[in-house]
Computed example of a mutant assay.
Amino acid sequence: MERKQISNLVKQMNVDSATGPVDTRVQEIIVRLVTDLFQAIEELDIQPSEVWKGLEYLTDAGQANELGLLAAGLGLEHFLDLRADEIDLKAGITGGTPRTIEGPLYVAGAPESVGFARMDDGSESNKIDTLIIEGTVTDTEGNPIENAKVEIWHANSLGNYSFFDKAQSEFNLRRTIFTNDKGKYVALTTMPVGYGCPPEGTTQALLNKLGRHGNRPSHVHYFVSAPGFRKLTTQFNIEGDQYLWDDFAFATRDGLVATAVDVTDSSEIKRYGVDRPFKHITFNISLAKDSVSAPSAEVERRRLCA
């Protein structure tokens, strides 16, 4: 069947057959996607059994709550970031910390504080290195932004996230820190580790078919926002991880690689209020001013809320 025939067929089924109110945007998107799907079935000679196996896979992935993971693994989230970069550039928005993927593991409602927060509940204090993350939030000209909202979340020593991992306490390794009058924030936490997709999960099953691994490097997620500035969704990946530039979710970008420095000096240990050597990461954040000429940087999607 030729493209024109397919297009007419899809239009007949999904446009001409309408008998009630139509959401024209949804209709436009569905017609295009279904037309492209039918064209792919024709060109690739996709068999009925393969179509139904694909639908069964999506059903299983949805039931396993892995569609968000799949979106990252197939590069969909990364593509949306690259497209957003292009849109910003056309709107004259330049500079600022690079964006990268959110991933599927954010939880709204983390405890809030100003300037400083301890993120961990102490349950892994003797199992993994202490980490102090600090930085300054500024505009693209370097002026500090007071009261910027810095939301931070990351995995524990087993690569698991609180709420999704019921063994962890509520909001373990999740905090919201508002910057102080100098634009600074400090987080006392533990070193995150890299992790992989659930080995028996639907995402890894598909990655296996593609000959790909499902591993992520050690990283820390951020939402950063302030009135008058574009919300930033980003993360830093930690230097030295074997998957730093081989992240299955394609989230590592220039400008988002952080180095964890060993701090052993007793005066520095005392100054930071800890009782032993620790790792230290500096992650400064630059926000671009908002613009009416660009789409909102706030992405609407379903997120867990405690």
Rank of each mutant, 00 (worst) to 15 (best):
I6Q: 10
S7E: 08
N8T: 01
N8K: 14
Q12E: 12
A18V: 10
D23Q: 11
T24K: 11
R25S: 06
Q27V: 08
I29G: 03
I29S: 00
I30D: 02
L33D: 12
T35V: 02
A40V: 12
W52T: 15
L58N: 04
T59M: 13
A61H: 07
E66V: 01
G75R: 04
L82F: 07
A84E: 06
A84G: 04
D88E: 10
T94H: 11
T97A: 02
T97W: 05
P98C: 11
P104N: 00
L105K: 13
S113T: 03
V114W: 08
V114E: 08
L131C: 09
E134D: 15
T136V: 15
T140W: 04
T140L: 00
E146Q: 13
W153Q: 02
H154L: 06
N160W: 00
Y161E: 00
Y161A: 00
F163L: 02
F164Y: 13
D165N: 07
N172V: 00
R174A: 01
T176Y: 09
K184R: 15
Y185P: 06
A187D: 07
L188N: 10
T190H: 13
M191R: 11
Y195T: 11
E200G: 08
L206S: 02
L207Q: 00
L210K: 11
G211H: 08
G214K: 01
G214C: 04
V224M: 05
S225F: 03
R230Y: 11
T234G: 00
Q235D: 00
Q235S: 01
D241F: 06
Y243R: 14
D246S: 15
D247H: 04
A249K: 01
A260T: 05
D265M: 13
K270S: 09
H280Q: 11
I285Y: 06
A288I: 10
A288E: 14
S293N: 15
A294D: 06
S296L: 08
A297Q: 03
E298W: 10
R301N: 06
L304M: 14
